[in-house]
Computed example of a mutant assay.
Amino acid sequence: MTTQTTATEHPEHGEGGQYTTPGKEFTRDTTYITTRITTDGADGYPVEAGRYRLVAARACPWANRTIIVRRLLGLEDAISLGTPGPTHDADSWTFDLDPGDTDPVLGIAKLKEAYLKRFPDYSRGITVPAVVDERTGAVVTNDYAQITLDFSSQWREHHRDGAPELYPEHLREEIDEVNARVYSEVNNGVYRCGFAGSQLAYEQAYDRLWSALDWLEERLTHQRFLIGETITEADVRLFTTLVRFDAVYHGHFKCNRNKLAEMPALWGYARDLFQTPGFGDTIDFAQIKEHYYVVHTDINPTQIVPVGPDLSGWVSPHGREELGGRPFGDGSPPAPPREGEQVDPAHTPLR
């Protein structure tokens, strides 16, 4: 089943964020193509290794989640990965990083082609992440929140040996509760600040964001991970915002009460995850900065990309081991990124 509505899309990420108008709060349109890929194939798309391609730009925090979960669970053999470039226009994400500016598996130059293949009259923004059926070249889903949950629950047959339990049954209620607040106040909160349409809307968004970050600082002062003793879906969702905070959100989105590096627990937590296989090795800081500062011409009309900040702190000792916990529980870290899926060494402090 699919759900579509028509909305005025902000072109920034193709993430379903509506334009703000003067005096208005930024509102993200959260209606997506809700078709699911499941073991029983109830929506017409059964789990099948080698059939689907995850299209996920490294620049986008919502897409970055899916890249991380795919790595942690070891789904590289089951689901291929296509990575659009960091910039795009209002029309579509494009495959300008690939030879001939064309995705080598799907044979398309613009992700929009996969959307129109299934929905010829598709009128919404072209968003990442998206899962595309390689057989037909048509998009299956762009419901980013459900995609990662289904990677954990529906693709278990294809998980690597030692894959972590990112969404364990006994913790789901707490994970869902934390995820809801993190999404509303942090993941989306930074955008609410950046795209506020008035001073009042900005200040209200700013207060909400920092209230939530202070709550997280307190929570993570006493425990290594957000939920329980191991990494879960909740940590993935928070991490992709934190890793962009000082490089982009602090200045570009005016989230500038202080830097992440000035919050001891959150900074240690973010570095702990960054240095964990499957997290930091998916982060391309150059692409992240180019995306935000070049695409958001309404916020940054000069399109000048800042040289800083210094990234060396991301690989400094974090000391979070003292809080205990086991990142992968009874499992093990994933293998290094595969050939063709590594981040350019010049774009990361990891060596």
Rank of each mutant, 00 (worst) to 15 (best):
T2S: 15
T3N: 14
T5N: 10
T5M: 05
T6P: 03
P11E: 11
E15Y: 14
G17E: 02
G17V: 11
Y19A: 12
G23F: 09
T27G: 02
T30G: 11
Y32G: 03
T34C: 09
G44R: 02
R51W: 02
R53S: 06
A56K: 00
R58F: 09
R58K: 12
A59E: 05
I68L: 05
V69E: 00
L72W: 14
D77P: 04
A78K: 05
S80W: 05
S80C: 04
P84E: 07
P84S: 07
P86H: 00
T87G: 04
D91F: 13
K117S: 13
F119W: 14
Y122F: 15
V128Q: 06
P129T: 04
A130M: 04
A130K: 00
R135N: 14
A138F: 03
A138Y: 02
V139K: 00
A145S: 15
T148N: 01
R156S: 12
R156Y: 10
D161C: 06
Y167D: 10
H170G: 10
E174I: 11
N179K: 13
Y183S: 06
E185Y: 15
V186H: 04
N187W: 05
N187H: 10
V190D: 02
C193Y: 00
G197Y: 01
S198K: 11
L200K: 13
A201S: 15
Q204D: 06
A205E: 11
L213A: 05
W215K: 15
L216D: 02
E217Q: 10
R219K: 12
T221A: 13
Q223T: 09
R224G: 04
L226E: 08
I227Q: 00
V236M: 00
R237S: 05
D246M: 03
G251L: 09
H252V: 10
F253L: 01
C255K: 06
R257F: 09
P264I: 01
L266W: 03
A270R: 00
R271Y: 10
Q275S: 06
T276D: 03
G280F: 02
I283Y: 06
A286P: 01
K289H: 12
E290L: 07
H291R: 03
Y293P: 02
Q303F: 06
D310C: 09
D310F: 11
G319E: 12
L323N: 11
L323Q: 05
G324H: 06
G331D: 09
P334G: 06
E339M: 13
D344Q: 09
D344N: 15
D344L: 08
H347K: 14
L350G: 04
L350R: 01
